[in-house]
């Protein structure tokens, strides 16, 4: 049952990212050129509702569907990993006009060359795992 809900949520996510154009290379370019409010409005709305929702969940100490207390483990402290890793990701995001979710959204629309980027992302993740001990975190 839970699996079906997750699959349906993923499907809704794919539809939303396509229909609201967060999966469009052109929209990402436009965002990084500050030439439209579209993507900022998109992320801003998600954050506005997200912040309120997460605060409500925390304050009301809501339990999840299995009756477990909802915990949001804080991310590890540090600066270099977030700044350097984030910058590298941002470069890739702008270049292919898709962050990880939209890469698969576009694959679903029949843009099969995106498969090359997906292969690259899996390889990039593997390389990180291989050399991460040599990187500042």
């Amino acid at each position: 049952m839970k699996n079906i809900i997750v699959l349906l949520l993923g499907t809704l996510f794919g539809v939303v990212m396509f229909k609201a154009e967060a999966a469009s290379w052109f929209r990402i370019y436009e965002m990084f050129k500050f030439q439209s409010f579209h993507m900022y409005g998109f992320i801003g709305t998600a954050l506005f509702i997200g912040v309120i929702g997460v605060q409500l969940i925390k304050r009301k100490k809501l339990k999840d569907i299995d009756g477990q207390p909802i915990e949001m483990p804080p991310k590890e402290k540090g600066i270099p990993r977030y700044l350097i890793g984030g910058t590298l990701f941002g470069m890739g995001w702008a270049l292919i006009g898709a962050c990880p979710g939209p890469m698969f959204v576009m694959l679903g629309t029949g843009l099969f060359t995106m498969g090359i980027a997906i292969f690259g992302a899996i390889l990039g993740t593997y390389i990180y795992g291989l050399i991460r001990h040599h990187l500042p975190h």
Partner: peptide, 12 residues
Amino acid sequence: GGLLVGFGTRYA
């Protein structure tokens, strides 16, 4: 682009 996304997201 894919390499940057994969490496960068995991690093970050």
